[in-house]
Design a binder for these strands. Structure first.
Length: 219
DNA sequence: AAAACGGGGGC
DNA sequence: GCCCCAGTTTT
């Protein structure tokens, strides 16, 4: 797939999903009002966890503490309790405590705004770091989750093995002005139509552009 | 490159 | 029962 077609696909999806109102909305609707710290914590909670659960337990946790200083005052068990039943909730409670300490100690209480510094925080990988940069600080960043990785390859726009390779490829091939839209659009698209298995190609608005790489059963 | 982390919901 | 979910770390 050419760059021109990829941009066309983005624009079509933007029309199809003008306002994404799946369960994720409870988390995402408030994201513009969130601080970078809240975005970071929510994103950590979200790993391998349903959006709705992430949204609920994030709100519960932020009522106890919405900044690293307050978070350090709460016992780890209380954090775990607040974010239950998110997956890995005990481990995440430990991570939240740890990175809050590091943010206060090494970054003056402010969440870093660069990928390199964010990656120094335990439990923060490229996906999380890019999301904080994009949503927390409004800077261009390409956030590659499973949806972005799968769909970019399925379209035939990139041919990559890992999420990091996808990120680097997209960085080269997509103009910056589109970077922050890709994740949102592909998540919405990926959860409803371009699913991991048995995607609904007959209902897909960009089917004619798609090379359907690796798609076996398509409806 | 693959396993481990680890709980709930859908089918 | 089995598979999946806005991933990251460890082996």
């Amino acid at each position: 797939m050419s760059r021109e077609d990829f941009i066309k696909v983005l624009n079509i999806l933007k029309r199809e999903f003008p306002r994404w109102d799946a369960p994720v909305v409870s988390l995402m609707a408030k994201r513009d009002k969130r601080t970078p710290y809240q975005i970071l914590i929510s994103t950590i909670i979200s790993l391998r966890t349903k959006d709705q659960v992430t949204a609920e337990v994030s709100e519960r946790l932020f009522r106890l503490a919405d900044n690293p200083y307050d978070m350090l005052k709460i016992p780890e068990e209380k954090i775990a309790e607040a974010i239950y039943p998110a997956g890995f909730y005990r481990n995440k409670a430990k991570v939240i405590k740890e990175i809050s300490g590091k943010i206060v100690k090494d970054f003056g209480g402010k969440v870093p705004d660069s990928i390199d510094e964010l990656l120094k925080l335990k439990g923060v990988g490229r996906k999380t770091a890019n999301l904080v940069v994009a949503l927390g600080y409004g800077k261009p960043a390409i956030c590659v989750d499973t949806h972005v990785h799968r769909i970019s390859n399925r379209l035939g726009f990139v041919k990559t093995k890992t999420a990091e390779e996808t990120e680097m490829a997209l960085r080269k091939k997509v103009p910056r002005e589109y970077w922050n839209e890709i994740n949102d659009l592909f998540v919405a698209f990926g959860q409803t139509i371009c699913k991991p298995v048995s995607p609904k190609c007959s209902e897909c608005p960009v089917s004619s552009y798609c090379e359907k790489v690796g798609v076996k059963k398509h409806r």
